[in-house]
Computed example of a mutant assay.
Amino acid sequence: MASLGVAMTGIRERRAVFGEAADAYEAARPGYPSDLVDDVLAHARAGDAPVLEVGAGTGKASVAFAGRGLALTCLEPDARMAAVLTRACAPYPGTAVVVTGFEQWQPPAERFGLLFSAQAWHWVDPASRWTLAFDALRPGGTIALFWNRFSVDDTALRSALTAAHSRHDAAELAPNTLGDPEPAVADPAPAWPLTDLLADTRYRDAETRRYPARHTFTRDRYLDLLASISAYRMLPESWRVPLFADIARTVDDRGGSFELEVETHLYLARTSDQP
């Protein structure tokens, strides 16, 4: 069997594989806490200013913000993901879906009061993303970036699922949903979004917040979750199918469902007041 690193490289670009599993993504991925939406909107104080979402996917975050009556523009580069997104946002007439990447998009003259990105900012070009965001936001506008982090606190189940990955030479993928079994250090270094924001003089008042939750995952929902993660999608089918079958048996052997810890990490900042 080829090495995992070799299997995850090739013709397909990793950030472009999500559309292959758009339905699984929509079915399995958890949404975002209403408290997070409240906090982002309170921080933005955007009023009637338009709002921009970068990398909207199937609309997991889009609908939560669109439901607050915002004038929302959603950018999504994958047409297959955007088709699901468009259906999800159909009840919200103030929402527009644009099938494009942030790097290729031509912003309107009116700047945005809030830019948010859920589970997607790491896919935007590192060399230009902070400039693109700054140019899209009005002075004092808010940028809000957030990700769901998964973990399993059931030690026996985590060990069994890690072992299933190891049997298929895919142990390094397990932390995507199982978390790090090692205890966290007392004062961890800040994650890269906060580090970048603190170092960029165009942004101020950078901070991070966390929102813990628990979600019940059946075997099938868990497999859909894995199928929606780029690292698993990059595996050849001949590798992924037996791995998923082993994982399914492992979950079935432990009752067919389990609790997944989902902690949402939010990074907030404002643009400087200078245009």
Rank of each mutant, 00 (worst) to 15 (best):
A56R: 02
G57F: 12
G57D: 13
T58C: 04
T58H: 03
G59N: 05
S62H: 04
S62P: 07
V63C: 07
G67I: 07
G67K: 10
R68F: 04
A71V: 05
C74S: 14
C74Q: 11
A79P: 15
A79V: 15
R80L: 14
R80D: 14
M81S: 12
M81L: 15
A82C: 07
A82Q: 13
A83W: 08
V84E: 13
V84P: 12
L85H: 05
T86M: 00
A88E: 11
A88I: 09
P93W: 03
A96L: 09
A96I: 00
V97M: 00
V98Y: 03
T100H: 04
G101V: 02
Q104D: 15
Q106N: 10
P107M: 05
P107A: 02
P107Q: 07
P108R: 14
E110F: 07
G113F: 01
L114F: 08
F116C: 08
S117D: 09
S117V: 04
A118H: 09
W121D: 09
W121K: 04
W121Q: 04
D125G: 10
D125R: 05
P126F: 06
A127C: 09
S128K: 02
S128C: 03
R129V: 05
R129M: 12
L132K: 10
L132S: 11
L132W: 05
L132F: 06
A133H: 07
F134W: 14
D135Q: 15
A136N: 02
A136F: 09
A136M: 06
R138K: 15
P139Y: 08
A144V: 02
L145F: 11
F146Q: 10
W147R: 12
N148T: 10
R149G: 08
F150Y: 15
V152N: 05
D153I: 09
T155M: 10
A156Y: 02
A156T: 09
A163F: 00
H165F: 12
H168G: 03
H168Y: 01
